[in-house]
């Protein structure tokens, strides 16, 4: 019972970690290069979720100026996430560019096949 209670209070963390694992797993084990990049995106968003849920626990109100509110939550983490989202977009775009080039060179998106082709050429 205590476990369930703990889980429910930390639900966001739990989900974030599950998503992180899914993303990580996809990124590491999937052969398809585009899938790898999707895994990377899932991993990143899960981390942002983790961050946001921390901020949620601590703060409670968005840092927008309104009448009567004196205390604001720390805006730095949300700026971090914002930048993080943009960076993950950049990573994605760049990775996709590389994937397209790899496809042009190898005619496949399968990491194992690419490695096999390379080792055949070297060996």
């Amino acid at each position: 019972m205590a476990i369930i209670e703990k889980l429910s209070t930390n639900l966001y963390y739990l989900v974030a970690i599950i998503l992180f694992i899914i993303g990580f797993h996809t990124m590491l084990t999937h052969n398809n290069l585009i899938k790898k990049i999707m895994g990377m995106n899932i991993m990143d968003t899960s981390l942002f979720l983790f961050f946001v849920s921390i901020g949620y626990r601590r703060g409670g109100i968005a840092p927008i100026i309104k009448e009567g509110i004196v205390e604001y939550v720390n805006p730095v983490p949300s700026a971090l996430i914002l930048t993080g989202i943009v960076i993950s977009l950049s990573f994605t775009a760049f990775a996709l560019g590389l994937v397209i080039l790899l496809y042009k060179h190898y005619g496949t998106l399968d990491a194992d096949k690419i490695i096999a082709m390379r080792s055949r050429e070297i060996g």
């Binding site: 995106n41 968003t45 946001v52 109100i61 949300s78 914002l82 989202i85 977009l89």
Partner: peptide, 24 residues
């Protein structure tokens, strides 16, 4: 979770731009 600015950014960039790039 009371992070509207992150939410709107994610909606525009995560759901919009990233998907577009994947499609491309």
């Amino acid at each position: 979770l009371h992070s509207p600015d992150i939410a709107i950014t994610e909606a525009a960039i995560g759901a919009g731009a990233t998907s577009l790039l994947f499609l491309a």
